[in-house]
Amino acid sequence: MADAETDSLTAEQQACLALWAVPGLGPRTLAALRAFADGSLSPLVATPVRDWVSQAPVSPQVRRRLATVERLAPLADRVLSACRASGMGVAFAGQRAYPERLVEVLDAPPLLFYRGSPGMPRRRLAMVGSRHPDQGFLPLARRFARRVAEAGVGVVSGAAAGVDQACHWGALDARGETWAFLGSALDAFDTAQARLLPHFLDRGGMFFSELPPGVRASTTTFPRRNRLISGASDAVLVMRAGKKSGSLYTAEAGRAQGRPVLAMPGDVRQEAAFGCNTLLRDGHATACLAPEDVWRVLKVDPLAAVPLPGALGSWEALSAEAKGTFAMLDRVPRSFDEVLIGSTLSPAALVGALVELELTGLVIQHPGRLYERI
């Protein structure tokens, strides 16, 4: 299942997809290649690789790999074919399946591979933790995630055994939205992740990876994917982390990206809680004792939660007026008059669009007729 958005690629997208499939070529090198090609990758599609590769601003290793490619367009086609064979879609930055908040991240990938269907816009929380937390913690994590999801908050994690999967299951228990960012390609995940996937697809969840088909997980891919977990979220909650837990990479990435970081304190005698307690001691995180702490940071009212799947339709079901009004709003409250000035709608039509967005849980109205998107 290739996404409809990628059935017909532009030359820029073809070049981007082909280059992204070359091992060792990351966001910075891609940006350098775009500058090398006068601001657009499109000319590289029309020109044999041998005609430009010797002058390209890439590492020697990447240059050797590129030299084995005749043209970029056939390579992009091969990647798309592999995606279709594995049921993956490809989302380029700016498309609806690409997480909106991730676009803000400095080293965000230009595209993501995914499985599942994008849901309604909402606040999202990264919930991460150890593969081996202290005894009895996993049921607590699952219940906590369920309460978070019941408030309409999306749960983002890494699908790893332990706390990550407990949080995904908690969101699924509530029939809420949950996203998993993997450290492997979506055709190369482990058995536990493979068992989780059908439940995601049945209940509105999504699997994401920045890695092209065929790439297996390694010690380098997991730390890299952690920046995606935090970058796609509005805040990060570290539930359990030992001294060397990978969850601390997610917390560090979240801080660098300007995301609020929370941590759940634990018994000082428990090695599994050492990382969380250290984050709190050093002032790098705010203590999280209950879901109410999450709701406060995300500015979520659980009594006015985003409807769970099937409750009030989908993004596609919204009127054109509501979609256009939503696009005009942001995370800073704006007055009705401010929105009206930038809108082409009449005052009455704008009121109707805002009411529709409020009923769907996509917009919060503050006192004084101030409107904020979720």
Rank of each mutant, 00 (worst) to 15 (best):
G183C: 11
Y98T: 08
A188E: 06
E372W: 00
D234K: 13
A15P: 14
L303E: 12
H199P: 05
R101P: 03
G254R: 03
T10Y: 11
S247Y: 04
V236D: 06
R225A: 04
W179K: 02
A256H: 10
A272W: 03
T250D: 05
G183D: 04
V351A: 13
L308Y: 09
P27M: 03
S81M: 08
R369E: 15
E150L: 14
L289F: 15
A2C: 04
I374L: 11
T219E: 12
L370G: 09
P121D: 08
S8L: 15
S157N: 10
L354I: 12
D267K: 01
G204E: 02
S81P: 00
P118R: 02
A304M: 14
V79D: 13
E338Y: 11
D187Y: 03
D3M: 13
A180E: 01
T178G: 09
R369H: 13
D187E: 08
T344W: 12
L196K: 00
G154A: 11
R64Y: 03
V45Y: 07
W179N: 04
L201K: 04
G368M: 09
D337V: 06
W315N: 07
P367G: 06
Y371I: 08
R227G: 04
S230W: 02
V332N: 05
I364C: 10
D38G: 09
G242L: 04
G154S: 02
T221H: 01
D282L: 10
V215F: 00
R142S: 10
T47A: 14
F189W: 01
L312Y: 08
M264F: 11
L41T: 12
G310W: 02
A185G: 15
E100D: 13
L308K: 12
L30D: 06
Q14T: 10
L345Q: 09
V153R: 12
T278S: 15
Q135R: 06
N226W: 00
F137L: 14
C288W: 06
A73G: 13
L106P: 08
A18H: 05
G254S: 10
S54Q: 02
L308A: 15
A287G: 13
V236A: 05
P43H: 10
L172S: 12
L125K: 13
A56Q: 10
Q55M: 10
P74H: 14
A31W: 10
F274P: 06
V163K: 06
L66E: 05
D7Y: 07
A126N: 10
L102I: 11
A126S: 12
T191P: 00
T221M: 00
Y114C: 01
E372Y: 00
R101I: 08
V163C: 08
A15N: 12
T286E: 14
V58S: 07
L362M: 09
A2K: 04
H132S: 15
A141R: 00
C276A: 04
E104I: 01
L72D: 05
A192R: 02
D77Q: 13
R227H: 05
W295G: 05
G183N: 05
A317D: 14
A73W: 09
T221D: 01
K299H: 14
A76N: 08
P302L: 03
G231S: 06
L138R: 01
A18G: 12
A93W: 00
A174W: 01
R203S: 13
V53C: 12
G313Y: 03
S130T: 03
R34V: 13
A348Y: 02
D190R: 00
L228S: 00
